[in-house]
Design a protein around this nucleic acid. Structure first.
Lengths: 247, 247
DNA sequence: CTGGGTTGTTGATCCACCTCAATGCCGGGG
DNA sequence: CCCCGGCATTGAGGTGGATCAACAACCCAG
């Protein structure tokens, strides 16, 4: 009999990651591995089931096409947990730091039997994957049906929720990624992103203090420029804070 | 002690769906519910965890935006298993038949405790969700980075793998959905889809015998028009055929 | 067979975004 | 200090796909 939290809690993401999931594994090797990544550094996801938590910075899950076009399929900011597709059916995925980042890797590939034998762990993983699917769907609709202005407003609002800090003059965001990266996430190109930023500023939806910093007075107004809402909670695979009783 | 198959097998998808998953539930009510849907008919996904298998026809998982734009986020053809996002965070999803279809619904919402207590079932669900995520990622890259011609070629090749029948003159496909539906799946509009079909025919990549039927000589050539491959296996949440020992 | 509704095709036009190119800005190193 | 490389911004011009509209093909009912 044991008990643990799967996320959040006093220890922060790393502690909870280690305490929560690892507590569910029966006596394997000490699993969590801490990594630091420079901007632009890539990490191969390899084979087998792995989970990552972002401790600091911002990382992207990326793919590229045969001709070099890149698409970022997901962003993770501190507190997010994510899990790349384990089998890459000729689409190769990698993890890339868009700014200096720290993350924690949990390699579960040698614990397939543990997972198959631990219902609590397996159903938590299932719940988490369901949550992740939800945010991919939202991104998919964004790419399929929204125009540039709508995509950018949604993105700026999303980043404000994720990493903005409240100040007396509004929500201040230090943008930790380049225009190129934003473009590859939104299915646009860097020049278009830059142009739309100028339009956003002119429309007073966000105030750009520098290329890497903006202040939003009214996040709701910003995201209502798009006909679907941005998630108020950070997107990505994430465990909710709740107790789970283990058997 | 019991044993079952989670998909495929002699009984076809319905039997396996009933035999497999239901066999994993401890004595609840007989769960699988058979539904017939007319073209255009919608089915609300409701709340709670539900799984569907398609027995015949073709169904789509759809969303729409505040201004009416529709996006089809996934297609399911016979043999596919799918699972809509359970919580619709202000994005409303529904299931829509694009042609007369039959499907089988498994309502697991009252079996949360069973899932949390049955490691085999929970880890199968997790594996299935992982597989579903993989196909959403592929679709996301399609919408983010491919042009119209590439999207359409990938789609035609995908449909050939899913529902084509081999004939001496090539792979013959009866297209069970309207141009509008294809457009909403590919993030285009109906006129553009029609125009691109004409280009595909002119390029002899596929031979349209009628608006709803085409023959492909070389599926590989078709999908190689796009820089990423179409999945050879039908996309969507799908259980592989394999035995699972239950405890 | 005929008429009406639905769906598919094709054309003309427009516009959002891409591409290419020039310039500006900033930080680091000699 | 200047120079240089990387990134952001802005402009000019081209294009793929959307929009609007006309028409053709087909299905079904009467």
């Amino acid at each position: 009999m044991a008990s643990g939290k799967l996320a959040g809690g006093a220890g922060g993401p790393f502690r909870s990651c280690a305490n929560g999931i690892c507590g569910l594994l029966d006596g394997g090797p000490p699993l969590p591995r801490l990594r630091s990544m420079e901007r632009g550094e890539r990490l191969d996801t390899g084979t087998g089931l792995k989970l990552w938590t972002v401790l600091g910075g911002i990382v992207a899950l990326c793919t590229s096409l045969a001709d070099g076009r890149r698409q970022i399929v997901g962003l993770s900011t501190p507190g997010n947990l994510f899990c790349p597709p384990d089998e890459t059916e000729r689409l190769d995925f990698w993890i890339e730091a868009l700014a200096p980042s720290q993350l924690c890797e949990l390699d579960l590939s040698s614990h397939a039997r543990t997972i198959a034998g631990n219902a609590t762990l397996a159903s938590e993983l299932f719940r988490a994957a369901q949550g992740q699917a939800r945010s991919i769907y939202a991104h998919l609709v964004t790419l399929g049906r929204l125009d540039g202005m709508e995509r950018v407003c949604l993105f700026l609002a999303d980043m404000a929720w994720r990493i903005g800090e409240r100040t007396p003059e509004g929500c201040r965001v230090r943008l930790p990624m380049a225009r190129e990266d934003i473009a590859d996430y939104l299915g646009l190109n860097a020049e278009t992103v830059s142009r739309i930023f100028s339009r956003v500023k002119k429309a007073r939806l966000a105030d750009f203090r520098s290329p890497t910093e903006y202040v939003v007075q009214d996040i709701a107004a910003l995201q209502s420029r798009a006909p679907i809402p941005a998630p108020h909670r950070p997107a990505g695979l994430e465990f909710e804070e709740r107790e789970v009783a283990l058997s």
